[in-house]
């Protein structure tokens, strides 16, 4: 009974992905058919240039934002974690993180309009960065605890230069946190719809914006194709993470 419940829960979480894949391959799937009439790759092979530009924008934004937010968050947290105003910085970092991205976007849209950044690739990128950066800061703030700062001090006491401490102590110790932060900020940017649609003014179409457009047009098959594309990188990241985390956990427990 317990196992049946457990497998039902697991199946429930896996079902949306299977459904999206099936819908993207369906030729016709009308009510009341439980399964599609036949399967085809036509929706995948007949994709137009708009899809590829949306894919390129999403990749560009997610990779750039993931990289820069992680870097900025890491460096800021490293120095602010020891600052006397650290607690205030932490309180303030929670605000943009807790704010609804779409309302945030509407509030700052004016500044993007007057600086000619609205409807531009750089504008959407900047908007996503100012959303992801406080999140990266929050992730690293906890990471730079008293132990890590003491380690940094120890390295300095032993005569290591700033550069040596950074590259030979901080970076190796923070490898997992950096990987986690990159993955999280990558996903925030990759999944973003509210900021991209408001600041992009419909001119910068990411995969999420395109998916919403297809849903609005009742083009369910193409919406399923773009939805599959949105889900693919996170699924890959998840699989890689599970594979390596599980392996390292197993190794640790075996060593212990």
């Amino acid at each position: 009974m317990k196992k049946a419940l457990l497998y039902s829960i697991c199946a429930l979480f896996a079902l949306p992905f299977a459904y999206l894949a099936l819908l993207s391959l369906a030729t016709q799937w009308f009510y009341p058919a439980l399964l599609p009439d036949s399967l085809t790759f036509l929706h995948w092979t007949g994709l137009h240039a708009g899809f590829f530009s949306a894919l390129a924008y999403s990749c560009l934004f997610a990779l750039t934002i993931g990289m820069f937010s992680t870097l900025a968050g890491f460096l800021s947290a490293q120095y602010i974690a020891g600052h006397p105003w650290r607690r205030w910085a932490l309180v303030l970092a929670y605000l943009p993180y807790a704010f609804s991205p779409v309302i945030y976007a509407h509030c700052i849209k004016f500044f993007f309009l007057v600086s000619n950044l609205a409807g531009q690739v750089t504008g959407v990128m900047l908007a996503q960065f100012i959303l992801c950066y406080p999140f990266a800061f929050l992730l690293f703030f906890r990471h730079f605890d008293a132990d890590l700062r003491a380690m940094e001090d120890l390295s300095a006491t032993l005569g290591a230069s700033r550069t040596a401490t950074f590259f030979r102590v901080l970076l190796p110790v923070s490898k997992d946190a950096l990987r986690l932060c990159f993955a999280q900020t990558f996903l925030i940017s990759w999944f973003d719809y509210g900021l991209s649609s408001v600041i992009g003014l419909g001119q910068v179409r990411t995969l999420t914006v395109l998916t919403y457009q297809y849903i609005g047009e009742a083009n369910t098959y193409l919406a399923a194709v773009t939805a599959c594309m949105i889900c693919f990188p996170p699924l890959l990241l998840l699989w890689l993470n599970q594979r390596f985390v599980f392996r390292s956990e197993t190794l640790q427990s075996e060593t212990a």
């Binding site: 457990l6 829960i9 697991c10 979480f13 896996a14 949306p16 992905f17 459904y19 999206l20 819908l23 996903l187 990759w190 999944f191 719809y193 999420t208 998916t211 919403y212 849903i215 369910t220 919406a223 939805a227 949105i230 889900c231 996170p234 699924l235 990241l237 998840l238 699989w239 993470n241 599970q242 599980f246």
Partner: peptide
């Protein structure tokens, strides 16, 4: 396997989840 399944909704953005629910 169960842990992997529990992490699956991480890969589902709200927009896609809403689309699937709609369907």
């Amino acid at each position: 396997g169960v842990r992997f399944s529990l992490h699956l909704p991480l890969a589902l953005p709200p927009l896609v989840a809403a689309f699937v629910s709609f369907q």
